[in-house]
Amino acid sequence: MSIATPDRFGAQSAASLTERLTGARRDVRGRIVEWILLSALGLSLLILVALVVNLVDRAWPVLDGRLGDFLSSGLDASNAAEAGVWQAIRGTLTLAIIVAIVAFPLGIACAIYLEEYAGQSRIARLIRINVRNLAGVPSIVYGILGLTIFVKFAGGLTGGRTVIAGGLTLATLVLPVVIITASEALRAVPQSIREGALGVGATKWEAVRSHVLPSAAPGILTGTVLALSRAAGEAAPLLLVGGITGLLRTGNQSIWQQITEGGFTSMPVAIFSYARQTGADFQAVTGAASLILLVLVIIINGLAIWLRNRFESRW
């Protein structure tokens, strides 16, 4: 073991060091990992494509032959050639209106309280935790709540298993979504906007109404639209509060009868009912109804995303 003189080895190690620092060796392991990650993303997108293609493929006999008829026909569990989704579409619209009337004001009011009035008080913390937990409660549990409270306990007011009870149940279900998104929108409004209003002598409510709410409106609107799309796709709680599934002969009543006497259905409930029928022709009916619901929900969600991007303010 001789002592390496700088002369003999210095040049060599300098060369190898330069090589290692500047050499463009491929990072093989890195590439492989990146491809694995990318394929996870690709597979997720592929699932989405497969879902849509499969739906269109299955639904084609209905879409091609009798789309208009399908949209305007009533529910029919015995004859697939005459089955349609008219009452289901109508029911979903009615439910959405009830959800909008009940859940939006209530949810936005709660969010205003939490963000503008409550601060960090103990009750506010409790309500915040409570709202987050409500957001995670499985939808079927809201069905039990609806059955006990809106159908049985308040049956005198709602008429029992009616579209009103269904709408109130869905409103309760989406309330946490409205509160959480509205809270986030309010929190994003900078303090200076509030101070601007309070500084010229506005009361709290005046500041909220004239300054904070208009600034937060796009965010709040996005949240409410997302909540509507959630309500439009939800079936489980409606099964418990009276969404029609059996022979589907009912659900044909006028909206007033649905409100007062019950017998309502909605798109997801109708899809569930059709999916339980056997035979290829009912498969096509289920596929067509699923495709219509999917398109509806994607349009609503797209609207929400568009709203968010269009009106998003950078403070």
Partner: peptide
């Protein structure tokens, strides 16, 4: 204006308390 302010404050807190009622009703039933 003062009355309007108090009234809105009450309405907002009532809405917030209503969410607690939902949880209590779920657990109770």
């Amino acid at each position: 204006r003062r009355r309007a302010d108090t009234r809105m404050r009450l309405i907002f807190s009532a809405a917030a308390v209503a969410t607690l009622a939902i949880s209590i009703l779920i657990i109770y039933t």
